[in-house]
Design a protein around this nucleic acid. Structure first.
Length: 446
RNA sequence: GCCGCUGUAGCUCAGCAGGUCAGAGCAUCCGGCUGUUAACCGGACGGUCAUCGGUUCGAAUCCGAUCAGCGGCGCCA
């Protein structure tokens, strides 16, 4: 295969600008073939770039023979460079087309494995190619805005972004969902089963880092070896977490509301086209305003029981319960004051010690939990007591307990599941549709 | 960990009371068409029916095991 020289690097027009009618009389476009049809004298080549798709007509009488031959035989995903006149034409999908005067196929693609007949499995096996699809491109643009908005919101509040390790020996959730990392040769000699775990959350590290910086956040992957096979779970997911000194649970909740509203505002302003391409009902997102409804755990029990469930104090809400609560909602919902068994690190409410100063934020429309957070236990003695109550060993929390011995203060924090949030914003039916290379229990490739 | 499902051509699937059942559409290739909207017309190419074993005169079809994958639950973000 002979490759052409590296083409001119200037003078190209984005397809988005051609479609908006802003371009001049003649434009140069570069991109990839999205669809193609041809007859003996006329080829219709729909070309995409990262900003859109546009139909190009290549007429045998109006271009060099080699250009027409190339346009006729090039397969989907061939890369092309073309010049021509933009024309408003209702016969073209999108309302505009380019009548080509030059049409160069930069690289003839082999037969693209993804055609109109698609299955989940095939698209996952060919994820490295499916990333070119308008679905993936739209979702990833929205995802990028969510990351940026999260970062901007907390930076504007003077929070400091920090990084915590992914290799750790501390568990913050149950040990059953920890990934083990081996250090091959050394393990065999020492008899050690593993070298470290992969982090499930930055929280323990955040509480240590907080004492210097006071207000901090991070954007990082977390790892959970759950055997979960649902549309809401990944084994490697992106975790946006915040920790703040001198802050009560209810104050943290207010900041979170502001964050959600800010993220939505940014996405609506930057990604309306993408939301609409994905078929999202944008009005739902437009109508979300703070403050969100807040309901205590024990009141949720009553509400669910009145809907036909049979729950008592201490029972957890499964997805069925979450779905029942959020299916008809159009705005996020807070649940607070969970039973203290939910987490040893959350601070019990002094006026109701069986319940915690903590909260979950449930996304509406049946999407369910996207945030878990709360006020942390700050008294060293109380923390040790809580660890023992939960049948955990204080010895395994050595340095985490240590930080409480030196000027402990009240503080709160939360974790936001970014992928779940993007999934909700996109109106996606599966979390794996909004991350480039999803990782689940049975898929680590491509 | 538990429950359920799937595996037949490159892709999507049909065929499964066992006996011309190796099929269709799409893709690809060849031919045709000056306006197509993942077009249309004609032709060609294409499969150890996931793997291994069993039942049977005979297995894509029934049974078992294995492998791969998908969905849901519990748990969580």
């Amino acid at each position: 295969m002979e490759y052409p020289e590296f083409p001119d690097d200037a003078g190209y027009t984005l397809i988005r600008d051609v479609l908006s009618g802003k371009s001049g009389k003649s434009v140069k476009i570069r991109g990839w073939i999205y669809r193609t049809r041809s007859s003996g004298k006329l080829a219709f080549v729909v070309v995409r770039d990262s900003t859109g798709v546009i139909q190009c007509t290549v007429s045998r009488d109006k271009v060099a023979k080699s250009d027409f031959d190339g346009a006729s035989k090039a397969l989907i995903e061939s890369s092309v460079i073309l010049e021509g006149e933009p024309v408003k034409d209702d016969r073209a999908p999108g309302g505009w087309e380019i009548r080509a005067s030059k049409f160069e196929v930069f690289h003839f693609a082999e037969t693209f494995p993804i055609t109109k007949d698609q299955s989940d499995e095939h698209l996952l096996n060919n994820r490295h190619l499916w990333l070119r699809s308008r679905n993936m491109v739209s979702a990833l643009k929205i995802r990028s805005t969510v990351f940026k908005a999260f970062r901007d919101y907390w930076t504007n509040l003077d929070f400091t972004e920090i990084q915590s390790p992914s290799f750790t020996t501390s568990a913050c959730e149950g040990g059953s969902t920890l990934f083990n990392v081996s250090y091959d040769d050394e393990n065999e000699e020492s008899g050690q089963k593993f070298y470290a775990h992969l982090s499930q959350s930055w929280q323990l590290y955040a509480e240590a880092t907080m004492f210097g910086l006071e207000n901090i956040f991070t954007l990082a992957p977390s790892f959970r070896a759950e055997k979960s096979r649902t549309r809401r779970h990944l084994t490697e997911f992106w975790h946006a977490e915040v920790e703040s000194a001198w802050l009560h649970n209810h104050q943290m909740m207010e900041l979170e509301e502001g964050m959600i509203v800010y993220i939505l505002k940014e996405v609506l302003s930057a990604n309306r086209t993408e939301l609409e391409f994905l078929g999202r009902d944008v009005s739902v997102l437009e109508n979300i305003k703070a403050p969100f409804d807040k309901i205590k755990y024990e009141d949720v029990l009553d509400k669910l029981n009145s809907m036909g469930f049979d729950l008592g104090w201490g029972d957890d809400f499964g997805y069925k319960e979450e779905k029942a609560l959020t299916q008809e909602l159009r705005s996020p919902l807070y649940i607070t004051h969970f039973p203290k068994e939910k987490g040893f690190y959350h601070r019990p409410d002094p006026s109701d010690p069986k319940a915690l100063f903590c909260h979950d934020l449930l996304a509406p429309e049946g999407y369910g939990e996207i945030i878990g957070g709360g006020e942390r236990v700050w008294s060293p003695d109380e923390l040790i007591e809580r660890i023992k109550e939960e049948d955990l060993e204080p010895e395994s929390y050595g340095w985490y307990l240590d930080i409480r011995k030196f000027g402990s203060v009240p503080h709160s924090g939360f974790g936001l599941g970014i992928d779940r949030t993007v999934s909700w914003i996109c109106g996606s039916d599966h979390i794996k549709h909004v991350i480039p290379f999803p990782r689940t229990m049975r898929r680590t490739t491509p």
